[in-house]
Amino acid sequence: MAIDVARPPLAAAERGEPPLAAAPARRFTPSPAWRQAASRIGWTLVSVGCFAGLWELLWAFGIADPKLLPPPHVFLGSLADQARFFNTAQRWQIGVGMNSGPSPAMAVLITVLSSTGRVLAGLLLAAILSIGVGVAIRYVAIIEKLTLPTITLLAPVSPIAWLPVAIFLFGIGNAPAIFMVFIALFFTMVLSTINQIDGVNRNFLNVARTMGATKRQIYARVIIPAILPGLLVVLRLNLFGAWMVVLVAEATGVGYGLGQVIMLARNTFNPSLVFFTITLIGLLGFGFDLVFRMVQRRLLYWVPQTAGVLRGL
Rank of each mutant, 00 (worst) to 15 (best):
A2W: 14
I3V: 12
I3P: 00
D4T: 15
A6I: 09
R7L: 07
L10G: 13
G16S: 14
E17M: 08
P18Y: 08
P19G: 07
A21C: 05
P24G: 00
R26W: 04
R27N: 03
F28Q: 05
T29D: 01
T29C: 01
T29M: 04
T29L: 07
P32A: 12
P32S: 11
R35P: 08
Q36I: 01
A37I: 00
A38L: 12
R40I: 08
W43R: 03
S47P: 03
V48C: 00
C50A: 15
A52E: 03
L58H: 02
W59F: 12
W59G: 04
F61T: 12
G62L: 00
I63M: 09
P66Y: 08
L68R: 06
P70F: 06
P71L: 08
H73T: 10
H73M: 05
R84D: 04
F85H: 04
N87P: 11
R91C: 03
G95A: 13
G95K: 01
M98P: 08
M98S: 14
P102S: 02
A105Q: 10
M106T: 09
L109R: 04
L109V: 13
I110N: 15
T111D: 00
T111P: 00
V112L: 04
L113F: 05
G117V: 01
L120I: 03
A121V: 02
L123E: 15
L123N: 04
L124D: 03
A127N: 01
A127Q: 15
I128A: 09
I128Q: 10
L129P: 01
I131N: 04
V133L: 03
V135I: 04
I137Q: 09
I137D: 14
A141S: 10
I142V: 09
K145Q: 02
L146Y: 03
L146N: 02
P149M: 13
T150H: 07
A155L: 05
P159F: 03
P159S: 01
I160W: 14
W162G: 14
P164K: 02
A166R: 00
F168A: 15
F170R: 00
G171Y: 10
I172F: 04
I172T: 14
I172N: 08
A177V: 05
F179W: 12
M180E: 06
V181D: 04
M189C: 11
V190M: 05
T193H: 14
I197L: 09
N203M: 15
L205K: 06
G212Y: 09
A220H: 13
A220M: 13
R221Q: 12
V222P: 04
I223P: 13
I223M: 11
I227N: 10
L231R: 10
V233Y: 10
L235D: 07
N238L: 09
W243N: 14
M244Q: 15
V246W: 02
V246P: 05
L247A: 08
V248H: 08
A249Q: 05
G253S: 15
G253L: 00
V254D: 10
G255C: 14
G255A: 12
G255R: 13
L258Y: 07
G259L: 09
L264K: 10
A265M: 08
S272Y: 11
T277A: 07
T279Q: 05
L283V: 12
L283W: 08
F286N: 15
G287Q: 06
F288K: 06
D289C: 02
D289S: 10
D289W: 14
V291A: 13
F292G: 03
R298E: 13
L300P: 05
Y301R: 14
W302M: 03
V303G: 09
P304A: 14
A307D: 15
L310P: 14
R311H: 15
